[in-house]
Design a protein around this nucleic acid. Structure first.
Length: 562
RNA sequence: CGGGGUGUGGCGCAGCCCGGUAGCGCGCUUCGUUCGGGACGAAGAGGUCGUAGGUUCAAAUCCUAUCACCCCGACCA
């Protein structure tokens, strides 16, 4: 393709609204433009990359027996009401104003709807159905360019099986396909155990890329490879001590002591000797959570334990429920359900709030003083804690979710009545899995991992062109003629070539645009080299460059272009 | 949704505090010179100063409302 005829509007300056490297570079390289917050247009170069990525995805999905669909983005609201997800999505779902339609944020319902209508026998299962389609989510705050948009491309696949054992097979097939897809895209990623959240279902894993621009936090053990979303991650921490002798409960006047740190300082004690109380509401009823010291409540773990959504009590509710404000709340005298983190198990001689402002209580023995106490793992793992598998130190960092695979089970098939008859003529709900990949995120994450101060660095496995050919001074006949000749010969040999044939553009501009766009191999035709009959080849990633005789050019390119 | 910030030519910005009719760099057009790492000179084109009200003889500038966008947080199948 000739640059002079192409629409590749590169930018010299950094657009003010872009912050993260991938966003800046996609704008600067002329791949995307923003239309509105979280809504992006893909320009020819950007869309070309999207097509390359979706081609890889299609090949690997087809390889595991996937069949491609194209479902409507506009869905009847009624179907979504049957699974309760209009409410579950809430404001995240876009609603059409002048008809009872919604814009689909995912497609479990619609796929299940079609299964229900057509698949009736175990003989027709399993099935893997997928599509690559635009999804709509009314994100409260779109950010990081294409990484979190209100409209985005997603490859979503659904598996339909006769049993949970067979679901395992479909799930595993997707797991392996995903590894191949991300490997082929040249992305450095890792897989973490995750929470299924409001999707429902049992097991789920996320394919993650480490990045400060990420919105998920993961715990990772470099030594043994343990990786988990912070929502479900666990670590080994020392439990509180149980002293031989339990003191009696006593009240302490603690004016203006609110936080655990203030309490520790005031009483000159260690935070491990304290139990922090938080009040949550579950099913409209208040209950108390006890954490050791400054340990943070992990609300996802809490919700998984309780089996439903919780919310922290409001400040005014606190007063009504406990008689005290946050900072002075504790288990003694609290009448509701009390769940403590495992770390506090059977602890004694502990300090906590007195449910009376400016007072705390010492000498608490959870075993003796808190009847019906429950214990659960409710902590949020912190950096530097001990890996449960190998004992090494855990790292905790931000990551971007590229893909997510779920074992859904029968949640949707039951809600929508998608059943089949088994070998014994017995009606059973179809067992489902669901598997997503954020297509733009693959693009953005690749760039996040492969750029330098000059621009993007594409990989041989994922690149917009095979060769970027630069004709430096196209006003010189010898340069123009040679470059044109090389261009047509390269095309003949089957290379996809971007030929910078612009006449009134300085050499420096061409070099900089080439570095910005980041095709792996640059071929430079200039007057200087031609005087000695030579062409220059430059490798974008290493910056390495070498001159070759015109006669040896194609030979050399065979080595260099993979 | 809470906090902070920004809206001035295609892009990046100054001007606003202290009101007087809009400027700089890049880009764009034309001509000439230059020609291997974002050239130089000359001449040009291009702006309802986000929008709507208000104050004033006069508003980019002051006041009110509103919209959009960015950042931090909350939220996030």
């Amino acid at each position: 393709m000739k640059f002079s005829k192409s629409f590749i509007p590169t930018l010299k300056e950094v657009p003010a609204d872009a912050v993260i490297p991938s966003h800046i570079l996609m704008l600067r390289a002329g791949m995307t433009r923003m239309l509105s917050a979280g809504i992006y247009s893909f320009l020819p170069l950007g869309y070309k990359m999207i097509k390359k990525i979706t081609k890889i995805i299609r090949e690997e999905m087809d390889a595991i027996g996937g069949q491609e669909f194209h479902l409507p983005a506009l869905n009847p609201k009624e179907i979504w009401e049957q699974t309760g997800r209009v409410e579950a999505f809430g404001d995240t779902m876009f609603h059409v104003k002048n008809r009872d339609l919604v814009l689909a944020p995912t497609h479990e319902e619609i796929m299940t709807y079609h299964v229900k209508g057509e698949i009736k026998s175990y003989k027709e299962l399993p099935q893997i159905w997928y599509q690559i389609q635009t999804k709509f989510r009314n994100e409260a705050r779109p950010r990081s360019g294409v990484i979190r948009g209100r409209q985005f491309l997603m490859k979503d696949a659904y598996s339909f099986d006769t049993s949970f054992e067979n679901l395992d097979k479909s799930y595993q097939a997707h797991y392996e396909a995903y590894r191949k897809i991300f490997d082929r895209c040249g992305i450095k990623y890792f897989v973490v155990g995750a929470s299924s959240g409001a999707m429902g279902g049992s097991k789920s894993e996320e394919f993650m890329v480490k990045s400060d621009a990420g919105e998920d936090t993961v715990a990772y053990c470099e030594k043994c490879g343990y990786a988990a979303n912070i929502e479900v991650a666990t670590s080994l921490v020392e439990p509180v001590k149980r002293y031989e002798e339990s003191k009696e409960i006593y009240e302490i006047h603690t004016p203006n002591v609110k936080s655990i740190d203030e309490l520790c300082e005031f009483l000159n004690i260690d935070e491990r000797e304290t139990a922090k109380s938080r009040v949550y509401i579950f099913n409209d009823k208040p209950f108390m959570i006890l954490m050791n010291g400054n340990d943070e409540v992990n609300e996802t773990k809490l919700e998984n334990y309780l089996g439903g959504a919780v919310r922290p009590a409001h400040p005014d509710e606190l007063k009504e429920i406990t008689g005290a404000d946050a900072g002075s709340i504790g288990p003694i005298g609290f009448s509701g359900r009390i769940i403590a983190d495992n770390r506090l198990k059977d602890g004694n001689n502990l300090y906590s709030g007195a449910n009376k402002n400016d007072y705390h209580i010492g000498g608490i023995d959870l075993k003796r003083d808190v009847k019906n106490i429950e214990y659960a793992d409710l902590r949020t793992v912190q950096k530097g804690e001990t890996c449960t598998r190998c004992g090494a130190e855990l790292d905790v960092f931000k990551a971007i979710e590229l893909g997510h695979i779920f074992k859904l089970g029968t949640k949707y098939s039951e809600a929508l009545g998608a059943t089949f008859l088994d070998e014994n003529g017995k009606e059973k709900p179809i067992v489902m899995g669901s598997y997503g990949i954020g297509v733009e995120r693959v693009l953005a994450c690749y760039i996040e991992q492969n750029y330098d101060e000059k621009g993007i660095i594409w990989d041989e496995r994922l690149k917009p062109f095979d060769i970027h050919l630069l004709g430096l001074n196209m006003k010189k006949e010898i340069v123009a003629e040679t470059a044109e000749k090389i261009y047509s010969e390269l095309k003949e040999k089957g290379y996809d070539v971007l030929f910078d044939d612009r006449i009134s553009v300085q050499a420096g501009v061409k070099f900089n645009d080439a570095d910005l766009i980041g095709v792996p191999v640059h071929v430079v035709v200039g007057e200087r080299g031609l005087k000695e009959g030579k062409i220059e080849i430059k490798l974008r990633r290493t910056g390495e460059r070498f001159s070759v005789e015109l006669d040896n050019l194609y030979e050399k390119l065979k080595e260099v272009v993979k």
